[in-house]
Each structure stands twice: as structure tokens, then as C-alpha cells.
Design a protein around this nucleic acid. Sequence first.
DNA 1: TAGATTGTTAATCGATTAACAATC
DNA 2: TAGATTGTTAATCGATTAACAATC
Lengths: 215, 215
Amino acid sequence: MEEKEISQAVISRLPRYFRYLGELKDEGVERISSQELSELMKVTASQIRQDFNNFGGFGQQGYGYNVEYLYKEIGKILGLDEKHNFIIIGAGNLGQALGNYLNFERRGFIFRGMFDKNPALVGKDVRGVKVMPMEEMERFVKENDIDIAVLTIPKSGAEEVAERLVANGIRAIWNFAHVDLNVPEGIQVENVHLSDSLMKLSYNIGCYKREKDKA
Amino acid sequence: MEEKEISQAVISRLPRYFRYLGELKDEGVERISSQELSELMKVTASQIRQDFNNFGGFGQQGYGYNVEYLYKEIGKILGLDEKHNFIIIGAGNLGQALGNYLNFERRGFIFRGMFDKNPALVGKDVRGVKVMPMEEMERFVKENDIDIAVLTIPKSGAEEVAERLVANGIRAIWNFAHVDLNVPEGIQVENVHLSDSLMKLSYNIGCYKREKDKA
DNA sequence: TAGATTGTTAATCGATTAACAATC
DNA sequence: TAGATTGTTAATCGATTAACAATC
């Protein structure tokens, strides 16, 4: 079967579809048309149908989409039907916040370990997980089938840690360090650059102010 | 002067340019051509020149771009030359993490106040800022020239809090709640949906595994 | 002046939207 | 069957890349 590559633009929209469909499901809504969904989500019905059809036909002509079925299918596409073990590197505020976030567990992301180079933090308990020293990271990754490493460390140490993780078989890095990681092909990196996001907000504030000043 | 609207695609790239130029500046690099920058950042030189030219000519033919000048100009475009007062609503782990993040201060984002509905958290000190009860939020926003509210509360309360903030003159919301906020025109919202980001990562892991299985 | 590199126009590519035939 | 709504093709729009004239 010839499979076309799905664009990242489409992938980026899937979690949002998943969220809306989950809410509809919880409200007991059984079916929905692309038209109704488009009004709810403020995107075009055309885009919704195109997006879903990248993965095959989930709907039925004259009926629309079955909410529960579509929800489940998108979940599968996103890999939420599988378990992913993750560790957090960096037990600072942000690392702890992510470790404590229970919703990840619901989606199959299991918090397995936490590491920090600061001896004062080693031994600290975060939701049942004890912070370990950095030296134990490699062994732990190999022995515990860890897929994802969450990097909540300063940018200075990030590249080196990423290399060590990759060398020990990590599959994906969720990167909160403010640096672009260089990893080999096949290792997935998803960046969350918070200050970039804040700067965008700052731009748009200024932008609106300029608009208003003109008027 | 007829001003063309700058696309969000361009805006999204500005913080990354800003970061690279800051690093070059710190390394003492004086000038750089779009070609060199393109190799460093792994984007096309053409895109770099197009992006910068949205805001007017920052370079010089035959020379390239002056790093320090370009860095400053992009900073100005992003509004980093101005001070922005912000408050954080929700004093949980994530809120505290953001409150403690010193780098925001460097960019002109000043942490002024923190609010939580949980009485057990009220009075707690986060980097010199005492957590206040939610009832004081409106007054505080009005009296302290607050531009930005950071929402680190559960989705259930987010919409109501956003409305109260908007009613009291907030200009922008940095939204970490997993919900799409409905705000009037002119109020800027920047969403950080962490679980969306994690799902994208999850998709890409699965995607690569499928690729490999086929081969 | 010659060489380098920008600023900018034109060409291409990809993503979004519109339209409609297929079909439930 | 008639009506509704998908799946899919075609048209449009916007963003990226290539090319080159302008100019330092």
C-alpha cells in the first residue's frame, strides 16, 4: 500500500480534534457532521474532511461521523492506545510540575524516573518517583524500556544529555531547554520553547497597539 | 504608510532568529550573511532575507547584516524593549515554575502578582511575590498596570477567569489551560497546550516505528 | 572597479478552500 | 427514493524558494 506522507500541519491539528471529540463524547453526542464540527472549532468543514481523509474514511455519507468511533481512531493515530514510559531530566520547578501532571498518565504516558545533577534534589519524591543522580540515567533508560525523555534542564547541559540519551536508545525527546538539539535521524524531538511563545505574545500586543494608534 | 499584515508564520520565526543572533553577539561575531545564518539555522537564505525584509532593510549589500544591530531591531519588533507586567493565575507547580523563571525578567516581563483559589496556597512566597486570593485579582490588575495574565489553572475555571481579566483591562493571556478561550477582538491569546505537544511527539514515534516495520 | 550580498520580483510548491459526484 | 453529507478532485490562496538586478 502506497502511503503518502502526512504533513505536520495536519498532525498539529489532530490533538485539537481529539480534544473536541472527547468533550462531545462526554456530553453524550453520538454523531456530528463536518459542518457542525467546523462551527464548533472555527475551522472550515472542508479542512476537517480533508484532514480525516488523510487516514482513510471515518465518516458515512448522509450521516456524518460517529463521535465515539472517530475519537478512538484519532487516539490510535496519535499512538495514545500504547503505553509510553518517560523520564524527566531536571528536577526543578518545571520538571516537578510535569511529573505531577496526572493527565499524561491517562493518555498512556507513564512517569518512570527523574534525574538531577544537584545532590540536594536527589532522593526527593515526586509523585512516588525518587529523583536519581545523573550517573544512573543511562542504566535506567536501558533497563526500563524508556521511550521518551523530558528535558527540563538549562540549555548549557542539554546537548550533552541528549547525546547520552540517544546513545542509550531513547526514541524521543520532549525538549524544554532553550536550544535546538542535534539528534540522529529517527529520533523525534518536540520543542517547547516557552520564551519563544511569550515573545510571540509580546509581538502581538505591540502590534495591536500600533494598529490602534494609527486609527 | 501602507503597512502589509505580517503573517504569523514569519512572527513564529522571529524568536528563533533572536536567539541565534544573541548567541552570535555573545560570541563576538560582528557581521553575518544570510548564507552563513542559513547554514547555522538550517533554513534557506532566501527565507531569512524575505523574513527580515518584512520589516525593512536591516542589511547592506556586499556586507551582510550587522549582528548587534539586527539583534536589537528584532528585539524591538518583538516588543522586548518595553516592560510588560504580568500576573500568574494558578499557584500550582506549573505556575510556580513560571514565576521562578528568571529569564523572562531579562526580556522585560516583570512578575507582579500571583493568585490562587486554594486558601492553603494564599500567602505563599514565590520569588518575592505573595500568592493572593482570587477575589483580589480584579483590583490588582487595574491598579498595577498589568498587561499579561498567565493562566495555569485547570480548564474548568479558565473561561470564567479569562472573562474577568478581560473585563478589567488585561491585554494578553498566556494560556496553559487545555481549552480554547473566547476573548474579544484585540485581546491576544497565546496557547501552550502541553498535552497537544506530547501527542504530536507520540504520533511521530509511532510513525517512525511503522516506517521501520515496512522496511 | 570588481566582488559580494542584499532587496525584491518571479516561479514553485504546498496547504487550504470550494465544488461536486459518489453513496449512505 | 430524496436528502444529507461524505470523499475527492479542482481551484485558489499563501508561503517558500529561486533568480537576479540593485547597490554597497
